[in-house]
Design a protein around this nucleic acid. Structure first.
Lengths: 158, 158
DNA sequence: CGAACATGGATGACGTGTCAACTATTCCGG
DNA sequence: CCGGAATAGTTGACACGTCATCCATGTTCG
């Protein structure tokens, strides 16, 4: 294998900025959601997916696919959310192995209370300082990066 | 407070792409580092900072400041790394409270082995699909976002 | 039917991050 | 010099993520 091609100064700088942006935006949004709504980002994400379907009830595996989470991660997280009364589990009549996840009234109340201030925070911390061109550029490059990573790990032959 | 201003379609799409890019790039790099070098991203980051200084020794608080990690997080992480022999702790003569963190030979060997393939992965998953303009745009927008978030949480008066 | 196998999902162990509390030193104003 | 603050760092509890494993039910095929 050839000599390593290190990052040049611009790449280095952009890479660090990218990493740091992720860190600070993630932390800021998480803190906002936690302090104002007592929800983690993950809780929020689960609740969003549940409210997105008609009857607010999903099979665990559908939810996992929609969120692109591992089953195990989701199962652990659902247990924590169930303990807090945000969601419930129900048995599935047609498949004895399966379980439905249902949104509880408290879960619905929690996300309805949380969503507006969360969106405000996303604007405040992110979109407020971006131009339309920035948004377009970001969307475009993110799409390419996602495609690249996913292409690589689904067919790891190189 | 006025009606919530939800994200429009472009913003929504870009925001999801951004979040997903973070998730997949982070996961791919973490997995690469873990499987090829038995290091987590955090291990790597700590080791990078240690090798960046002349004598490969730093006070815990300097390291925390440089990495912008909470003391507690760093302390926990250093304990785990110490257990694996990547770093060591030494008492500080001039300040009885303090401790130096030192890079062990194994720690140095680990990062020297890990760095080239990590950089390769960063290129493969990220820079390879970006143009110079993308890199410039990303660096610029990330800088603005970081500034905004940091301005907000250091002076939370609004 | 019944044995192999696949699928849905839960669990346990362990690494990681955060918050709050704690210990031990050092500093600083009397 | 003393007593209270600030500082350096650790610890414990708990939330979260991953991996490997496990169990129960379904499916398939001889």
């Amino acid at each position: 294998m050839a000599e390593t091609r290190w990052l040049d100064d611009h790449e280095q700088h952009a890479w660090r900025a990218y990493l740091r942006m992720n860190a600070v935006v993630g932390a800021a949004l998480a803190k906002q959601l936690q302090t104002e709504s007592m929800l983690s980002m993950q809780d929020f994400e689960v609740l969003v997916h549940l409210t997105d379907v008609d009857d607010a009830r999903l099979r665990v595996s559908e939810l996992a696919r929609a969120m692109r989470w591992e089953k195990s991660r989701l199962s652990h997280h659902l247990s924590r959310m169930e303990k807090r009364g945000l969601i419930g589990r129900e048995e599935c009549a047609s498949d004895g192995r399966g379980a439905f996840i249902v949104l509880t009234p408290q879960g619905r109340a929690a996300i309805e209370a949380a969503a507006p201030s969360h969106v405000d925070a996303v604007r405040r911390f992110f979109f407020d300082v971006l131009t339309d061109d920035d948004v377009k550029a970001l969307d475009s490059l993110a799409g390419r990066v996602i495609a690249r990573v996913e292409a690589t790990d689904t067919c790891p032959a190189e």
